[in-house]
């Protein structure tokens, strides 16, 4: 029987909950601070070990099913959150990324994956791992940028004053769009080897293109009208909705009847 990830999952969640709770009081005492940061990172490490063990156990990259991709999200979000926090000191990002990661793991606990070794021949490629990792990383960063957009909108509508969230959003979008572009192009190079053409306007590709071009519109608008924050933040929020459709929704669209990319379970 494949091994059970439940214990690791619960341990990670516990680390994050404790880490975030202590984080509230981190400024009070150095020990509290060290403990809170240590616990938060320990959650990430435990989950990395789980990913590595699963990889070994399955004999393939655990990136095929939705449940498996949720695992990588739960791994990357706190990591990106922590990195963003250390770089720019936004406290809220620790709570956000921690809570999101817990939600992803919670879904995995509620719907345990039917782990299955089988990886269809077309997925057995050197491109599979870089393509998926880069994409998940991009999605995780862009998810944070969407939140920055919402914060920016909220501040602009309800509170006046200096607002740094657009600049945080820009920084995140530059990185996220960079990774998104890598993922898109890795996908194209892979497609050429696996299916014979680098771009076929398959529904998943079509939505990946829409996601990409949405963020492109955002950075160009920001470059042109840096002061018009509200429309820019709306564009960013909308781009994230397209991203979500691309990620989850494509399977349900009528246009996807012939897609080669729908997730199997």
């Amino acid at each position: 029987m494949p091994f059970d990830p439940t214990l690791f999952t619960i341990a990670s969640i516990a680390c994050w909950v404790a880490g975030m709770a202590l984080f509230i009081f981190q400024k009070k005492h150095l020990l509290v601070k060290v403990l809170s940061h240590g616990l938060f990172l320990a959650g990430v490490i435990i989950l990395s070990v789980l990913a590595a063990l699963l990889w070994q156990e399955l004999g393939r990259a655990p990136m095929r099913t939705l449940g498996e991709t949720r695992l990588w999200y739960a791994l990357f979000l706190p990591l990106i959150g922590y990195a963003t926090y250390t770089r720019w000191k936004y406290d809220w990002i620790i709570y956000y990324s921690g809570v999101m990661a817990i939600v992803f793991l919670g879904v995995n606990l509620a719907y345990p994956d039917n782990y299955d070794r089988a990886l269809m021949p077309a997925l057995q490629s050197v491109w599979f791992v870089p393509h998926v990792i880069v994409y998940i990383f991009a999605y995780a960063i862009l998810a944070v940028s969407a939140l920055a957009a919402l914060k920016g909108l909220w501040i602009n509508y309800y509170r006046k004053g200096r607002d740094w969230s657009p600049q945080l959003a820009d920084n995140l979008v530059y990185i996220g769009l960079g990774f998104l572009t890598l993922g898109l192009l890795f996908g194209a190079l892979w497609g050429k080897e696996a299916w014979g053409h680098y771009w076929t306007w398959d529904p998943k590709e079509t939505w990946a293109f829409l996601t990409w071009i949405g963020y492109l519109a955002y950075i160009h608008f920001r470059h042109h009208k840096p002061r018009q924050v509200v429309p820019a933040m709306w564009v960013l929020a909308f781009a994230f909705i397209i991203l979500l459709i691309c990620w989850f929704g494509v399977n349900y669209l009528p246009s996807a009847a012939n897609s080669v990319h729908t997730y199997s379970n």
Partner: peptide, 27 residues
Amino acid sequence: GIFMVLAGSVYLMTLGKAPETVNGEMP
């Protein structure tokens, strides 16, 4: 073109700027 944009996307990732600090405090 693909390899040009691949290189370009790495450049894109370097464009972020640190926020200006207010009285030495982060926002």
